[in-house]
Design a protein around this nucleic acid. Sequence first.
DNA 1: GGGTCATATTTCCTATAGGATATTTTCAGC
DNA 2: GCTGAAAATATCCTATAGGAAATATGACCC
Lengths: 228, 228
Amino acid sequence: MPQPTSPGARARPVRRLTLADDVYESIKGLVMTHSLPPDERVNIDALARDLDVSPTPVREALARLESDGLVRKRALSGYTTTPLLTRAELDDLFDMRLLLEGEAAARAAAHASSADRQRIATEAAATEGVDAGVEYRRHATFTALDAQFHDLVATAAGSPLLRDSITRLHSHLHLHRLYFPAATAAQTHAEHQRVAAAIVAGEPAAATAAMRAHLTAARERHLPAFDR
Amino acid sequence: MPQPTSPGARARPVRRLTLADDVYESIKGLVMTHSLPPDERVNIDALARDLDVSPTPVREALARLESDGLVRKRALSGYTTTPLLTRAELDDLFDMRLLLEGEAAARAAAHASSADRQRIATEAAATEGVDAGVEYRRHATFTALDAQFHDLVATAAGSPLLRDSITRLHSHLHLHRLYFPAATAAQTHAEHQRVAAAIVAGEPAAATAAMRAHLTAARERHLPAFDR
DNA sequence: GGGTCATATTTCCTATAGGATATTTTCAGC
DNA sequence: GCTGAAAATATCCTATAGGAAATATGACCC
């Protein structure tokens, strides 16, 4: 017989968010960390059991993830995680980042608030001592800091649509990078510093150039992944 | 007792697509045509009854539409159609279009296939005689042709990510334009022709300039909507 | 007459059940 | 030993039911 509401009598505090939102974040995390490997079938029922919810919110979350491009849905065969990026797709991704984030850097330099400039400078400095620590943990920390720096710049540009587009792009990148953590934190840190300096100084052209140089170098750092 | 499969004994041919996909397209159409007015609550059950399906696929479709930005979800109060664009949001939208579609025009001019160039030229010519016909029908036709032209250019640019971003932007625009059909087809047609000519001629700089001029003029044509 | 509180209704949200289809496994035949 | 088909399994997809919260309505008090 179906128990009324509480499966397992779990404590249910006042939830401010929908269950589907939590599930969305959970699954997104699983995809990002490759706990759900790329190009693999996603069993809805199993996922629902693991997360201890019914299939309905899982299905709802997967629909959103499909719009984000993290999973695909085939006609009557269920959902599949997006396969790893090909060389062409990685190039396309970085072309887009050059266009969008270059523009974002210019706008941030042109008319960001002083508070935003402060935050960007602080964040760029934060990646300093990341080299210490355990390798696995180090990489996760570095990735998070990198993402946050780029998001700060995108936000400071003052265009909601531009920020959304950049954020969406970053999701795709994470699908690639985790398998090949080749980036050296020191070099990235130096490049971020140059971008931050140009933004703080209020020089749009220099900010764009620095950001583009950073992204071009980052793309180079990703390429060895295809040589194995 | 629940009838096995057919509610109402409706003929159900072999469906190649998911029911949720059909529902998604249906609801998207309702939002685009303002059959679901902007900034209004969306009743899931009522929508399910109207479309003659169960609430589950409706819920799934709404989740995808939320990612597209056509509806919003508030914590425990259900879905709401996105409100009409403000002046600032319209400016932001056109800034993004200038950036993305300007780039798309350049890339299309640089390395589109001859088949793509042919299609673009044909489509640009197609808007010629749209002025005839009933007003309501005329506007719908014009909007569709305009969207198709821009999509062709975006596709010819050869970047899947760029095309996706542009398509996403167009959805937002439709949220505004339908209420104020001010665009004159003749002028739009002339501007499209100039863009197409530059692409066919293979002149990236000219293509970008023509596209940006077109979009700048289009933005001007939308502005009177805010003066009433 | 306006504001506030309690009640009633509507609506959302989650869980479960069952039919239809794709996929896998098994077995027979070559 | 391999290819093909057929059966069995697993999974998806849709529909329905019921509890919980938010909103709307009405009465009461100031």
